[in-house]
Every structure is written in structure tokens, then in C-alpha cells.
């Protein structure tokens, strides 16, 4: 079977670079991989391609997902860890990139604690750069897999209402989803404590003050992980207060049992999400993880296709 879809990009540096048609092309090929992975164990899309997993910040699921996606597509992969590398000896990021590049790498999958690093690296390499999460800026594959999960569930995305709940201001997942979901015609809102949502100088999203109202309004909610260091830096008084006022408890959930719940993981049970809620079939956290693999396979396949046949 021939896959004819193409995307307009040569790298995936940030969500805002994606056209609506790019997103649907990624969905289409992801669906193809989802439908065929059981019969075709190994796809040849990335044969002869070397992919570096340059994770300058700890990651479990994103890294595993990308690594497996590369392997299912027959790429050679190697991992780069910042701890124990020359970065910890004071080597600059740009020199690290040049070192990796000198070994003949074609694809860089980059995770970094500083915003904008994939853009900075792309300006300094000829290879394909994929943003696997940069600082507070963006995490495009997470937004793609979240919207793909909703798309698989609803069969369409326009006129769906999604509320993102939690620490919006420090979250790259929130920014990525706000960008991608709005592009797909999803009606989005945000909800969170005043210290963790953008003020009016920073953004102009629909803000829903109470989680009860957010649940009432939304078809689906995306719960964000609450970083414990937010308490230490004074953004929140106590964890207990957060879970009391912003957490999805069983009693809230039971008022609207049809509510779709997404979470990028890893979940803090008892803080943003009640453990008893997690077992319900419309809590799609496991689907998100599963879809993440096919979204990343699709993205890699489409980007490498453009790399191999420029302008084709």
C-alpha cells in the first residue's frame, strides 16, 4: 500500500509551525501504523537513517516512545545522556551537537530544559530536528498524540470543548495543546489557580475559575501534572489546598461520568487526579501512551520522506 500524504515541514521545532493539513497527514499515517503494526512487525521507512535521542533532561515515556518508534521504522538509534557526558564537564551545547553530527547522524530528537533549544540547534545542523519537549515552550508530539486521541474517540474535532486544568504557566504541554487544538477548531479554555495561569498581559484564553465549572463546560479535560517544586517557590500554599480546589475527585467526576480525561503523565494520584477515577474507560491515559508511539512513527516517517525526496 502506498502512502501519499506529505507534510509541509522539514523539522518539527514548534507546534505553531504545523498547518492543519500537516496535522491530518500525521494522523492519517499514524492510523495506518496503528492498523498495520500487528501484521507488519518492522517498517522500512527509516532504513539507513541514524537517529540521535538527545535528551538533555530526564524523560521516561517520551524517550521510550521515540526510541521504539525509530526501531519499528528500522532506524539506527543511539542515546545521549547529559549526565556523565562532556556537558557536565562544561562542554557547550553547540559543541555537543557538532560532535554528534560528525558521527553522521540524520535525525535529532531533542529534549532540553531550556526553551528554544530545538530552534537553536536546527540553525546549526543540516539534519532533521524534532522537538521532544523544550523548557516551558513546547512539546508538539504530546499535543499531536493528545489531539489524535480525541480524534480517534470522537471521529472529528471541530466544536469539541477542551479545558486544560492545572499549572498552565510552567507547562509546555499546555502551550502545545493550546496551539494544536485551536488550529483544529477545538474550543479551548484553561483553569488553574491564579498564580499558575497566564495573566491578561500574557494571554487571552477563556479562563474558567472553578474545576466544577470546567467539568460542566468541557467535553474533555486535560489534567496537567503538578510539579512539587511549585510549592517550594511559593506559587501554592499547600498541596492539600490544590487537590481540594483543583483536583479531579471521584465525586466531581461522578457528576459527569461521560467526561473524557487526558493526562500527559506521570500522574500524581491524589493531587490532580483521584486514583479511583483512573480506571474508568473514558480516562484515556493509556490510549495516549499507545497513540504516542504511532504519532511519532508517523512524524518520523513523514519528515524522513521529505528529507530523502526534497521538494518531492
Amino acid at each position: 500500500m502506498e502512502n501519499t500524504e506529505r507534510i509541509s515541514l522539514n523539522n518539527l521545532l514548534q507546534s505553531s509551525d504545523l498547518l492543519e493539513s500537516d496535522i491530518y497527514a500525521i494522523f492519517k499515517r499514524a492510523k495506518y501504523f496503528l492498523d498495520n503494526y500487528k501484521t507488519i512487525k518492522k517498517f522500512k521507512d527509516l532504513e539507513g537513517i541514524s537517529a540521535a535521542l538527545a535528551f538533555f533532561e530526564p524523560s521516561t515515556r517520551t524517550k521510550l516512545s521515540f526510541e521504539l518508534a525509530c526501531k519499528r521504522l528500522s532506524a539506527d538509534t543511539f542515546s545521549f545522556q547529559s549526565s556523565g557526558s562532556s556537558l557536565s564537564k562544561g562542554e557547550s551545547l553547540i559543541d555537543t551537537l557538532r560532535t554528534i553530527e560528525a558521527m553522521g547522524v540524520n535525525v535529532y530528537i531533542v529534549r532540553h530544559q531550556c526553551s528554544g533549544v530545538p530552534i537553536f540547534l536546527q540553525q546549526n545542523t543540516k539534519g532533521i530536528v524534532i522537538n521532544a519537549g523544550d523548557g516551558k515552550h513546547d512539546h508538539p508530539t504530546q499535543a499531536l498524540l493528545d489531539s489524535f486521541t480525541l480524534y480517534q474517540y470522537y471521529g472529528k474535532l471541530n466544536n469539541i470543548r477542551v479545558c486544560i486544568v492545572g499549572d498552565i504557566i510552567h507547562s509546555r504541554v499546555a502551550r502545545a495543546n493550546l496551539s494544536v487544538l485551536q488550529k483544529l477548531g477545538v474550543e479551548v479554555a484553561i483553569s488553574g489557580p491564579g498564580t499558575l495561569i497566564p495573566n491578561k498581559n500574557q494571554a487571552d484564553y477563556k479562563v474558567i475559575d472553578k474545576i466544577e465549572d470546567a467539568i460542566d463546560w468541557a467535553d474533555a479535560i486535560i489534567l496537567l501534572r503538578l510539579q512539587r517544586e511549585r510549592m517550594e517557590s511559593g506559587f501554592l500554599p499547600t498541596l492539600r489546598e490544590y487537590s481540594q480546589y483543583m483536583g479531579l475527585s471521584y465525586s466531581l467526576f461522578s457528576k459527569k461520568p461521560g467526561l473524557i480525561v487526558l493526562h500527559p503523565g506521570p500522574v500524581n494520584y491524589g493531587i490532580e487526579l483521584d486514583y479511583n477515577v483512573s480506571a474508568f474507560p473514558n480516562v484515556l491515559i493509556q490510549s495516549q501512551v499507545k497513540h504516542g508511539l504511532f504519532i511519532r512513527m508517523s512524524l518520523l516517517s513523514l519528515l524522513v520522506q521529505n528529507y530523502r525526496e526534497p521538494g518531492g
Binding site: S115, G116, G135, Q202
Partner: peptide
């Protein structure tokens, strides 16, 4: 890293 504004929120930079 920059002025606090819509741009800083969008870029994920501390304002």
C-alpha cells in the same frame, strides 16, 4: 529572559 508579555508566554521564557 525577556519582557513579560504574550510573547514570553508563547515562547515559554521567564518574563
Amino acid at each position: 529572559a525577556m519582557n513579560e508579555s504574550r510573547v514570553s508566554f508563547q515562547l515559554g521564557l521567564k518574563g
